[in-house]
Design a protein around this nucleic acid. Structure first.
Lengths: 251, 251
DNA sequence: CGTAAAGTTGAATTCTTTCAAACACGGTGG
DNA sequence: CCACCGTGTTTGAAAGAATTCAACTTTACG
C-alpha cells in the first residue's frame, strides 16, 4: 500500500476548518444531506467546512469517526483492502454524497476514504440526537441511504451479471449521469480523474483488461477516456448498450 | 419467466390480514424496524399482519407500493430480471428484514419480491409522516439501511473480487450467521430453501458451476448442502476460507 | 407412479487473467 | 534544457476460470 499522508480523525489535529457560514451560496446543498433544513437550523448543528488535498485520507478503515461528512467538492474513493492485497473500491463519491454511513455512530467504518482530487467537506457531529431534534433530517438520511443502496444494487447487478465491456460502459454512464444531474458535466464531456486501475478495482476486472475494453468502446464510437477526461461519443447508443445488450461490440 | 400467482398491492384484494395485536409475543420485533417503539406506539401505526404461501409475489418490480413491510417469518427473494432474460437476486431476505426501501414513498420499487417459503409479514403504511411523529423510527430505518448497505457492500466485494468457490462459501456463511443471530439456526445446521440456480443468480455464476463448486466445498470438509439443509462442517476453517470479519449488528 | 424440476457430469468454447515487456507522459533535479 | 524516474498505459502470448451445450440421473410432488 502506498503510504499517503492523511489527516487524522482524532481531535486536536490541525485541519484548516471553519464554521460553514455560507450555506446560502453552497452549490451542494440543493441535493445534500442538509437540504431539508433552513440555514438557521443548519447552523445550530455547527457544521465544519474544510478542504483536503488530492490523494489524502479522510479516514481509514476501522476508524471511529465522530462526524458525518458531506462531500462538497471533488472526487473521493471509498475502498477496502482484502486479505489477498487486492483493493476493492466500494463507492466513488461525487459532490453531494454523504460519507461515513454506518448502523450506529459507535461502529467503526468498514472502508477507507481517500480523495482522488482536491476536495472540500462539510462535517456534522454525528446525528443521533440532532436527528430527533430535526426528524426531517433523519428521514433525509434514510432517503439518501435508500438512494445510494438502489444505485449500489445496480452496481451489484452489473458486476454479477454483465461482462467487462458492459461493466465499464455502465460505470462511465453512471458517473456521467450523476455528475450531470448535479450540474458538473459540460455537454458530453466531464472530468475523469480515475485511472484504469481505479476502474478495474471498482468493477472487479484487471487493469489490463480495462485497457482492452476501453479501446473496444472507443472503436465502437461509444465513449473515449483520454487526458483525464471522459467524452460520451453517442449517448443514445451507450444507453442502449448499457441497459439492453443488443449491440455487442465484437473485437 | 414462470408465472406465479401473487397477491396484488392494489387495494381490495383478499389477503387474510389482521391488525397485528400480538407484538408482545413477536419473535421478530427484537431486531425489526419497530424495535424502538412501545407496543402502544406500534399500534398507533395500525400495522397489518398477513401470511403468504411459498412462491408468491409480495410485489413486482415497478410497483407503487403503499406500505413498508417487515418480514416476520420465512425466506424471501428480492430480484430483478435483466433485458437478456437473466435473473439477478439482489437480496435474500430473512426474518426481521425491512422490505420496500426506496428514496421516497412515491418511487416505484426497483425489484420484485417473491416468497421462497411460506412467509408472514407486518405491513406499515409508509412512514413519511409517522416517522416525524416517532423520530426514533426514522433513525431506526436509517440504521437498518446502513446495516443492509454495509452487508450489500460485502456482497459487492465478494462478487467483484473473489472466485466462485469463495463466493458460494461466503453466501452460505452469511446466511448461517444472519440466521443464527436471529436464533433460527440450530447448531451447525439450518434450513436452506435455495436451489443451486438461486445461488447462481445471487452470485453471478452459472448453476452448473455452483454445482461443481458445492462438491468441492463438501469434499474439502467445509460445508454440505443437501435435502434443503445446510450443514457447516468446519466453522473455523470456513471463516478462514471466507476471511470476512464478523459483522456486528446494530443490536 | 409418472412427470417436472433440480441436480450431475463431460467436453468444447469463451472470456478474463497472468506474465512480460515496451511505451508515453509529467514532473524533478542537475 | 535535457536526462531521468515513476506512474500509468499499451500490446502479445499462454494459462486459467467459468460458461455453454448436451445428455443423463435423481428428487420432489400431485
Amino acid at each position: 500500500m502506498t503510504s499517503y499522508d492523511s489527516i487524522s480523525t482524532s481531535p486536536g489535529i490541525e485541519r484548516r476548518a471553519l464554521l460553514a457560514r455560507s450555506c446560502e451560496r453552497c452549490r451542494t446543498r440543493p441535493f445534500a444531506l442538509c437540504k431539508p433544513l433552513s440555514v438557521k437550523q443548519i447552523h445550530t448543528l455547527s457544521p465544519l467546512f474544510f478542504p483536503l488535498p488530492s490523494k489524502k485520507h479522510l479516514y481509514y478503515e476501522g476508524s471511529h469517526i465522530t462526524e458525518t461528512y458531506t462531500l462538497c467538492e471533488g472526487w473521493l474513493l471509498l475502498y477496502r483492502v482484502l486479505q489477498n492485497g487486492k483493493r476493492h473500491i466500494v463507492w466513488i463519491a461525487l459532490p453531494g454524497d454523504v460519507l461515513g454511513a454506518r448502523p450506529a455512530y459507535y461502529h467503526p467504518v468498514r472502508h477507507a476514504a481517500m480523495t482522488l482530487t482536491a476536495c472540500a467537506f462539510c462535517g456534522f457531529p454525528h446525528l443521533t440526537e440532532t436527528a430527533c431534534r430535526y426528524p426531517e433530517l433523519a428521514l433525509r438520511i434514510a432517503a439518501l441511504y435508500a438512494e445510494t443502496m438502489a444505485l449500489q444494487r445496480d452496481y451489484l447487478t452489473f458486476i454479477a451479471q454483465r461482462n467487462a465491456t458492459e461493466r465499464v460502459a455502465f460505470l462511465a454512464l453512471d458517473l456521467y449521469r450523476r455528475l450531470r444531474r448535479r450540474g458538473l458535466a459540460c455537454g458530453n464531456r466531464m472530468p475523469f480523474p480515475l485511472t484504469q486501475e481505479d476502474i478495474a478495482d471498482t468493477l472487479g476486472i484487471t487493469a489490463v483488461h480495462v485497457n482492452r475494453v476501453l479501446h473496444r468502446l472507443s472503436r465502437e464510437g461509444l465513449l473515449v477516456i483520454k487526458h483525464h477526461e471522459l467524452t460520451i461519443l453517442d449517448y443514445q447508443r451507450l444507453c442502449e448498450f448499457v441497459d439492453s445488450e443488443e449491440i455487442t461490440p465484437s473485437d
